[in-house]
Computed example of a mutant assay.
Amino acid sequence: MNDTPENVAASEPTESSGPVWLTLPDIAEQLGVRITQVHRMLKDGELVAVRRGERNVLSVPQEFIGEDGPLPELRGTFTVLHDGGFTDEEIVEWMFARDDRLVGGTPIGAIRQGAKTEVRRRAMEEAL
């Protein structure tokens, strides 16, 4: 059975509770890739990671990952926000910030519901 406790928790995040976090080795295992490929995803801007926990481990919100890898819709939004001077920490915070004007209630919720263009427009406004 595939519903291990971590898979159940990762599949049921809610925006109000914040992100469900995955370490880089967790992502590599989930996607069936080498850790070096996860590092490449970070370097290429497909993902953003922040240091968390008492061991200060690089972690990525589970919501940024789809079945086949990083959500492709995120890369452009991350680029816009980075170009606007946002740090990775600020990007994660922005992606989970409550915004009732967006379908899904947050930028990440809107992206996961197909509203990439609206999220990117708001990111451009923020980056000015």
Rank of each mutant, 00 (worst) to 15 (best):
T14S: 14
T14Q: 09
T14K: 12
T14N: 11
E15Q: 05
E15N: 05
E15C: 04
E15V: 09
S16L: 09
S16C: 02
G18P: 05
G18K: 01
V20A: 12
V20Q: 06
W21N: 04
W21R: 02
W21G: 10
W21F: 13
W21Q: 09
L22M: 14
L22A: 06
L22R: 09
L22T: 00
L22C: 07
L22I: 01
T23W: 08
T23Y: 07
T23P: 14
T23E: 15
T23M: 10
T23V: 10
L24V: 08
P25L: 04
P25G: 04
P25V: 05
D26E: 15
D26V: 01
I27G: 14
I27V: 15
I27R: 11
I27L: 13
A28V: 03
A28C: 04
A28G: 08
A28D: 03
E29T: 14
E29D: 14
E29M: 06
E29H: 10
Q30M: 13
Q30C: 06
Q30Y: 12
Q30G: 08
L31Y: 11
L31H: 12
G32E: 09
G32W: 02
G32T: 10
V33M: 10
R34A: 14
R34M: 06
R34Y: 05
I35S: 00
I35G: 01
T36G: 08
T36F: 00
Q37M: 13
V38S: 01
V38P: 02
V38N: 01
V38M: 03
H39I: 00
H39A: 02
H39E: 10
R40P: 00
R40S: 11
R40M: 07
R40V: 02
R40G: 02
M41L: 08
M41D: 14
L42N: 07
L42D: 08
L42W: 06
K43A: 15
K43H: 07
D44M: 04
D44I: 00
D44V: 01
D44T: 03
G45W: 03
G45F: 03
E46G: 00
E46C: 00
E46H: 01
L47W: 04
L47V: 02
L47N: 04
L47I: 00
V48F: 08
V48C: 13
V48N: 13
A49F: 11
A49I: 09
A49K: 13
V50P: 12
V50R: 09
R51A: 13
R51G: 07
R51D: 06
R52W: 06
R52I: 14
R52C: 07
E54V: 10
E54T: 09
E54G: 04
E54N: 09
R55F: 12
R55Q: 15
N56I: 05
N56P: 02
N56K: 12
N56H: 11
V57D: 08
L58W: 07
L58T: 02
S59K: 13
S59F: 01
S59P: 04
S59W: 01
V60M: 10
V60H: 11
P61M: 05
P61V: 04
P61I: 03
P61A: 12
Q62R: 15
Q62P: 03
Q62D: 11
E63T: 15
E63N: 12
E63A: 15
E63R: 12
E63I: 04
F64T: 11
F64M: 15
I65K: 03
G66L: 03
G66I: 02
E67F: 09
E67W: 07
